[in-house]
Write a protein that binds this DNA or RNA. Structure first.
Lengths: 270, 270
DNA sequence: TTTCCTCATTTCACAATATGCAACGAGGTT
DNA sequence: AACCTCGTTGCATATTGTGAAATGAGGAAA
């Protein structure tokens, strides 16, 4: 990191809000980058704070156990109260509240509309979404539900079920064909689902609407169950077959980030 | 809560450290008590802070996403960065660092020496401990390892293994008798272990040393695996058979608290 | 619809409070 | 033993957070 960018950071920090708080959070954030413990001098240097200021702030945070100071080495690490607060935060926030900013990131990275979807009976329901900035963009609305058999997110949800349940669902439900590319044969779908499990992502190749392609990946809880799906959808002209691997990589990455943060003891759907 | 105690809280808060920080953390703590969202006025009232002060502090915390402000209702909840920090905190801290304060609590509640123990090969190793304040107290030292067959914590670790592994271990290892009460018959031990699984706690009834009794309970990760054991140990005169149920209840409670906070994605032993 | 509350936010003058320097005490290393 | 670097603290200064009141924004009641 150059000196210039550090000064810029400092400026930005002073821009708004309560100064001391910004300093304190800066310290927490810097501290969070360490694998184990960090010493005061380094933290002070990295945040651009005076050593005594950093010392006083860290001492205050230590009183609340937001940071821990190793009694023997006097080095700092994050404190156990943060774990407590983190757990409570995940119980206070709903899925979309928790991960909206990640969808924003996904949209920025891919340029396409990003969505978060969960299973509701035999449909996939959009619970959050960040629309693409392009003029030509995808359609889904929060709250809307779509079929499982012809959407990328739907296939991900199917791939997360026990095989028998997916079979039952596909055989009992009607599988309307929206385009000539829609797969309506349960056996063919089940075969594709096995492929999806291996690849880690799914594609809707104009199966819902001609001219639209989607890519999705699974969100898993700490037990490994698929609890949701994230995906992007855009016009076939931008989401070309050639770009699918590169885009899928991004979708999977974001889905994994969400999964990692979803390692919660008691997650309650809101 | 009375007005008096609130003023006292306020005094305490101003006692030491950076004032604004104490106020900010007070707000976070108060916010953490809510199931969903809280409004500024209530938070300000509960923490004894001026509304404008609270507003500024919360706005600053919101910029860092340590709290979230519902855009439509303007009510506050904990923010998603806390989840992130919580995860990192649990990766930075070792088991004893994470839970020392809980052992302190256990010691306070029971009056007896509290210990945290993990499995190492065919022994139980003390990785943390808070000694009783009594003159007559238990002996274990951090780093020391003890047998599984004659200690309360050891039996808990045995009860957490797949049955075959416990059998193998008990049959291949030598089971020295330290007192006349030590159980050295593998079959009898296995039977007791089944009981322990049902009751949720184990007892060492003078099996390691005459005049000493211990009670232990399992610490489980999010998958339900037993990853450690917490226990208390004290002289038979205080840890009487009659008190065992009440003491066991406390030990189990603390073990559960630890387990709940141990719902981490990537826990690495230090 | 209009009126009336209550809520969160912003303004501004004031003084309370965080700051940085320098000094200190404590470990660890050469 | 001498030296270096670490974290912490005292103190004078002014930077910075503060609270009362005003403002703006919703919602509920009439």
């Amino acid at each position: 990191m150059t000196k210039g960018s550090k000064e810029k950071e400092e400026k930005e920090r002073n821009q708004q809000g309560v100064l001391v708080l910004n300093k304190a959070v800066s310290l927490l954030m810097e501290l969070s980058k360490f694998k184990y413990e960090a010493e005061l001098s380094e933290l002070a240097q990295r945040t651009g704070l005076n050593k005594s200021t950093a010392s006083r702030i860290l001492a205050t945070l230590e009183r609340w156990k937001l940071v821990r100071q190793n009694p023997s080495t006097r080095r700092f690490s994050l404190g156990h109260v943060l774990i407590h607060l983190g757990n409570l935060a995940s119980s206070q926030l709903s899925l979309p509240e928790l991960f909206h900013f990640r969808l924003e990131k996904l949209m920025e990275l891919t340029g396409e509309t990003a969505s978060l979807v969960i299973l509701d009976k035999d449909k996939a329901v959009y619970i959050d979404q960040v629309p693409s900035k392009s003029m030509i963009r995808s359609f889904p609305e929060v709250g809307a539900s779509v079929y499982l058999h012809c959407t990328a997110v739907g296939k991900i949800l199917l791939s997360g079920m026990p095989r028998e349940r997916a079979e039952k669902l596909l055989e009992s439900a009607s599988l309307p064909a929206f385009t000539c590319k829609t797969i309506t044969n349960p056996q063919a779908l089940l075969k594709q689902i096995e492929e999806i499990k291996l690849k880690g992502y799914s594609v809707d190749d104009e199966e819902t609407e001609l001219g639209g392609r989607c890519i999705a990946a699974p969100v898993r809880n700490s037990r490994g169950d698929v609890v949701a799906a994230v995906g992007i959808s855009g016009p076939s002209s931008r989401v070309t077959p050639e770009r699918i691997p590169e885009l899928a990589k991004i979708v999977i990455e974001v889905a994994k980030e969400i999964s990692n943060e979803l390692s919660l003891p008691s997650f309650t759907q809101k």
